[in-house]
């Protein structure tokens, strides 16, 4: 799948976006399955706004965002759900986990959302072990530390099929070692699927083998 951003200018940061300093705002940008994109930007420059606009969570912008050439505003709710279950995945900066259910249930919810799960429960447990959160799977999510929750959110993003993965500061609460493990898992999963990804962060890093670097 391709995601096209055409002359997108978010309303809240309109002036800044029109200043011409950005590689993304008010330009033509195409995200393809094979792309490994790093978006670097300081706090408050609109990283989360970008991920939310791509995810079709907010509509307060000029220009268009299209999935496979179709304006996201014209994609019916059922088809949008299908994109989110089969072609696109996401790690939100604010994680968006359900606090009242267990960590495993958060993952299982996403894994079983399409009629047929993409990966097995054993695979989920293996990923949790790899990221060092196997021991919190049965724990109520709201009682997990933010770092643990972040890793649960990453695993949740990886249990579904996708051709493009969007991540908004996914390692913000992980130490360097854990961030490396998580990045390794993400890279392997993207490789398996032939998928591309876009990751936003504050600084430069060497966690992934980026093919494109963009400034916001």
């Amino acid at each position: 799948m391709t995601i096209t951003l055409h002359q997108v200018v978010p309303a809240p940061i309109r002036e800044k976006a029109l200043s011409g300093m950005s590689d993304i705002w008010n330009r033509e940008l195409v995200l393809r399955a094979g792309d490994h994109i790093k978006v670097k930007a300081p706090s408050g420059s609109g990283k989360t706004t970008l991920t939310h606009i791509i995810w079709n969570l907010r509509r307060d912008y000029d220009g268009t965002v299209a999935y496979d050439g179709v304006n996201v505003l014209d994609i019916p709710a059922e088809a949008m759900a299908q994109y989110r279950q089969e072609k696109l995945s996401v790690v939100f900066q604010d994680l968006r986990l359900f606090g009242q259910i267990t960590a495993l249930e958060n993952i299982e919810l996403k894994r079983n959302m399409p009629g047929k799960p993409y990966c097995s429960l054993e695979k989920v447990q293996a990923m949790a072990a790899q990221l060092g959160v196997a021991h919190v799977l049965g724990q109520q999510t709201s009682t997990c530390s933010y770092g643990e929750q972040q890793r649960i959110a990453i695993i949740r993003a990886l249990v579904q099929p996708f051709t493009f993965l969007i991540m908004d500061e996914p390692f913000s609460h992980l130490d360097r070692d854990n961030a490396r493990k998580a990045a390794g898992l993400i890279a392997a999963e993207c490789r398996d699927r032939g998928a591309g990804f876009l990751v936003t962060d504050l600084d430069d890093d060497d966690l992934f083998d980026y093919s494109v670097h963009l400034n916001l």
Partner: peptide, 15 residues
């Protein structure tokens, strides 16, 4: 709020 999040995560209206 939970329904909203379910929709965000990709739960279809039909589901």
């Amino acid at each position: 709020r939970d329904i909203e999040l379910l929709k965000t995560l990709g739960a279809s209206p039909r589901q």
